[in-house]
Amino acid sequence: MDVMDRIREQVEKNPVVIFMKGTPQLPQCGFSSRAAQALQACGKDFGYVNVLADPEIFENLPRFANWPTFPQIYINGELIGGCDITLELFQSGELKKMVEAAHEKAA
């Protein structure tokens, strides 16, 4: 499968997915770590892709939604941003609502 199709598949099949360096259990970057923690604190399952373990996705993800850095967080098929935006949305309570709405829609 083409790498862009592989990325699209992850974004479409998961209500919430984070492309990160490392895994939520063993993050390899502070930004990825903080974003994954915020998602965990929302109390719902989320998918993750370890971009360090998939060089093809690492190379091509910045082109997918025209966003240059990692992590990238997608909710309901749409890029919501990187670490800063995810944390800001978490602190305002918005992230939890978005995650819950995405799960309801997928159910």
């Binding site: 966003w67 240059p68 850095t69 941003g81 800063d84 935006i85 949305l89």
Partner: peptide, 27 residues
Amino acid sequence: SLIERHRMVYAAMGDAMQTDIHALSIR
């Protein structure tokens, strides 16, 4: 929106995001 603002900052940085800059923390 937040994502629009971050995109504006990244757009302003242009190619530097691929070379000199590994990550920007943006407020």
